[in-house]
């Protein structure tokens, strides 16, 4: 066991090769207590391969993983006791009840007796399945199965929770419930590794995000740090009834406006700090004799960062 320096997970220089395909190359990241780290990338980017190596399901061709101070290998069991894994697939037995599924995995986590029974009852309340505890999971809706899938990963109170695209194919209501759960768990001090190709989820949940594509982490940091890579410029769209040319000239004179361009119904601006500059911009437009009927401000997001870094859209 090595000192963890407050880091629950430390992954260094991970590498995995399948035949001629380099699936993961030199991937490194770390997660501290109470921190949610997102691996954001399109399908096939290497997220699941990375997570499989982190949890010791897949033999690494290079690199190291340490969880809670214990090295992770395919054969190690000590480190795995600190990990709760929620796979992308709903990995439960459909012909067992929710309680039986939880009990089964509880035993595999080394739990048993009245402690396990109590923990299962608690968890069934948390995941909202207490009233369906003794129904077979094959009778559950997709959202309920997802909740059970997550519940199994939480059974033993892990220090690190790893969720591999947990909201794929989930209805909006269940999705929101899952995201709220992750936020709450992180708030309680659990380290969370969250893989997704949904930009909105990464922005909402993650303290730090690693943007992964073609098996490599292209950039890593907080949302603000990543956005700064493409510049802190907000897009402001004004819809004007008339005097578009005069308005464009007037707005271009503002020091925070970086770029001005016309569109079918008005003007698009790239502005540094739109929130602060917006009153002055509207004043300039009015002074140019235009009546502004609509204003839209779009802040730069991770989608834009991904596009900037990889040259392709996140969902391509």
């Amino acid at each position: 066991m090595t000192p963890d320096n407050g880091r629950v997970l430390e992954a260094s220089n991970l590498r995995k090769v399948f035949g001629d395909l380099v699936a993961v190359e030199d991937v490194s990241f770390h997660i501290g207590e109470g921190e949610t780290y997102g691996l954001l990338g399109p399908n096939g980017a290497g997220k699941t391969t990375t997570i499989s190596m982190v949890i010791g399901l897949l033999e690494r061709d290079g690199g190291e993983v340490v969880v809670a101070g214990n090295p992770v290998t395919t054969k190690s069991t000590t480190a795995k006791a600190a990990i709760g894994y929620v796979p992308q697939d709903i990995a439960i037995y459909p012909d067992l009840t929710a309680r039986e599924n939880l009990s089964f995995f509880g035993h595999l986590y080394g739990m048993g007796g009245s402690d396990l029974k109590r923990r299962i009852d608690e968890l069934l309340e948390v995941i909202g399945l207490a009233d369906r505890a003794d129904d077979r999971s094959e009778e559950f809706s997709g959202g309920m199965k997802r909740r059970l899938n997550i519940g199994i990963g939480l059974l033993h109170g892990p220090r690190l929770l790893m969720l591999d695209e947990p909201t794929v194919g989930v209805d909006p209501q269940s999705r929101n419930a899952i995201l709220e759960s992750v936020e709450r768990l992180s708030g309680e001090g659990m380290a969370v590794l969250y893989t997704t190709h949904y930009m909105e989820e990464a922005e909402r949940l993650c303290d730090r995000v690693g943007i992964i594509d073609e098996g490599q982490i292209k950039a890593e940091g907080t949302r603000a740090e990543l956005v700064s890579l493409v510049g802190q410029r907000d897009k402001v769209s004004l819809v004007t009834a008339d005097h578009a040319q005069e308005v464009a000239e007037a707005l271009a004179s503002h020091p925070d406006v970086v770029e001005v361009s016309g569109n079918e119904s008005g003007i698009d601006l790239l502005v540094s700090g739109a929130a602060a500059a917006l009153p002055a911009l509207l004043q300039l437009a009015a002074g140019a004799g235009a009546s502004v009927t609509s204003v839209e401000v779009v802040e730069p997001n991770l989608e834009a960062v991904f596009l900037h870094l990889t040259g392709k859209a996140l969902r391509d």
Binding site: G56, T74, T78, K80, A91, I92, Y93, L108
Partner: peptide, 15 residues
């Protein structure tokens, strides 16, 4: 097929 085997291996249980 269900992925339960993978999940079992993710627990502190040897193959």
């Amino acid at each position: 097929k269900l992925g339960v085997a993978r999940r079992m291996l993710s627990t502190p249980t040897s193959s």
